[in-house]
Simulated assay, not measured.
Amino acid sequence: MPITIPGAERSLTGPDNAVPAFMFDMLSAWGFRAITLAFRTGVLAALAEEELTAEQVAGKTGLDPRGTAFLLDCLDCVGYVRATGDRYVVTDTTRELLPMISVGIPYFEKIVFTDWANLEGRLRGELTLPFGPDQPRTPRWLAKEWRVFQDGMVALTNMNVDEILERVPVPDPSGHLLDLGGGYGLYSIALCRRYPQLRATVFEIPEMRRLAERAIAENGMTDRIDFRAGDFFTDDLGSTSMALLFNVIHSKSAAQNRELVARTAAALRPGGSLVLLDQFPAPELGPIGRSFGAMMALSMFNSVGQQTYPLDEVRDWLTDAGLVEVEFQPVRSAPGNGLFLARKPGR
């Protein structure tokens, strides 16, 4: 929310913005709700096409004209649109964001508003989850909102995929990539596009087959990327020169993650690499990044009984699995995210 605080209002935050600013936090919550609503109702998409009045926006979106005017004024305040007289248009930054994150808006609304409506009950122990912390969640339970979740992952992938491609080493450009919990397979698609001889397998629950295979086909990768349905705790993972564990560990217990990392390491060929992407409540990610990681931990506790993990704990899983050259790198394009890179000895 790009608001510059003038001198007259800095007393609200104390010297050097060093104390909690309750009213600013309330403003941020209101702002996020207004922004996601503007994405979901098509307000921002309409203003990306042309400069419009509030009444014209209301006509295009079917919203109340008076309420639309108030919404647009809020969006102008937080920097998502720019007002000139009685007409509005999206800012350049918003125009760039629209294709990246529009698909994920229902997911972002769900984790912030819908899911957290249950948070007090979870903290008080009045609401319980339909599974134990070390039990796999059944596809039937997940399937209720699985598409919303995966669309959120698409939006997050759109934000960081270019940086990921630059940071992820591919030990054998003509080898095989195993994408565990790979969703639509977007990272596999991007890596195979960059490395024309690379082949990949997206390993996911059966309910993802139709969506993943459609994405693979739409990107012209059916001859190089296959989908495999299964359980990566019990099924044979085969042999691969490279494995991705992206956005998986925060939905699993520590014991499950230790086992999963060990099984993945065992599937690597000598010299192969494991790349792990997740959110971390780590000071190394800076104050904003650490805040995202901490909020994600609370969110995962609330929704699936799990958490984000300290860097040292994840590093121990990797080294205990026999991997070497373990390295952590912050992902700057997605605050709170970081990459662990590790290699299997040999060759």
Results as ranks from 00 to 15, higher is better:
residue 125 G to P: 01
residue 86 D to C: 10
residue 331 V to F: 12
residue 58 A to D: 04
residue 196 P to I: 08
residue 271 G to F: 13
residue 161 V to R: 09
residue 335 P to L: 11
residue 45 A to W: 04
residue 8 A to T: 13
residue 140 R to D: 03
residue 73 D to I: 14
residue 12 L to Y: 10
residue 272 G to V: 00
residue 309 Y to E: 00
residue 291 S to L: 08
residue 326 V to W: 13
residue 216 I to M: 09
residue 271 G to P: 05
residue 279 Q to M: 11
residue 164 I to A: 15
residue 129 L to A: 00
residue 126 E to F: 07
residue 166 E to A: 14
residue 299 S to Y: 02
residue 261 V to F: 07
residue 223 D to I: 05
residue 291 S to D: 00
residue 260 L to N: 08
residue 331 V to C: 14
residue 97 L to I: 01
residue 246 F to K: 02
residue 48 A to V: 03
residue 260 L to K: 13
residue 144 K to L: 10
residue 256 Q to W: 14
residue 342 A to W: 03
residue 151 D to I: 10
residue 334 A to M: 09
residue 336 G to F: 05
residue 158 N to G: 08
residue 244 L to P: 04
residue 343 R to I: 02
residue 34 A to V: 11
residue 105 I to K: 02
residue 55 E to L: 12
residue 136 P to E: 02
residue 180 L to P: 02
residue 12 L to V: 11
residue 36 T to R: 10
residue 288 I to S: 00
residue 320 D to R: 15
residue 228 R to P: 06
residue 75 L to G: 09
residue 175 G to P: 10
residue 322 G to A: 08
residue 58 A to M: 10
residue 325 E to H: 11
residue 21 A to T: 14
residue 122 R to N: 01
residue 40 R to L: 13
residue 75 L to M: 15
residue 262 A to S: 05
residue 282 A to G: 00
residue 16 D to N: 15
residue 139 P to W: 10
residue 279 Q to W: 07
residue 303 S to L: 03
residue 40 R to T: 09
residue 11 S to K: 12
residue 145 E to M: 15
residue 249 I to K: 01
residue 140 R to Q: 05
residue 108 F to I: 06
residue 26 M to L: 15
residue 306 Q to M: 07
residue 298 L to M: 06
residue 172 D to G: 02
residue 234 T to H: 13
residue 247 N to L: 14
residue 334 A to K: 04
residue 169 P to F: 08
residue 115 D to N: 05
residue 98 L to P: 04
residue 293 G to Q: 00
residue 188 S to V: 09
residue 72 L to S: 07
residue 195 Y to A: 03
residue 36 T to D: 07
residue 104 G to N: 03
residue 164 I to P: 00
residue 4 T to M: 09
residue 276 L to K: 07
residue 157 T to R: 07
residue 152 G to Y: 13
residue 196 P to E: 02
residue 322 G to V: 06
residue 179 D to G: 10
residue 218 E to A: 15
residue 292 F to I: 08
residue 238 G to H: 13
residue 10 R to E: 09
residue 169 P to K: 07
residue 89 V to M: 09
residue 189 I to C: 04
residue 202 V to P: 05
residue 207 E to W: 07
residue 283 P to G: 05
residue 346 G to V: 04
residue 98 L to W: 03
residue 183 G to Y: 13
residue 214 R to W: 01
residue 159 M to I: 06
residue 131 F to H: 05
residue 237 L to P: 08
residue 331 V to I: 14
residue 308 T to L: 12
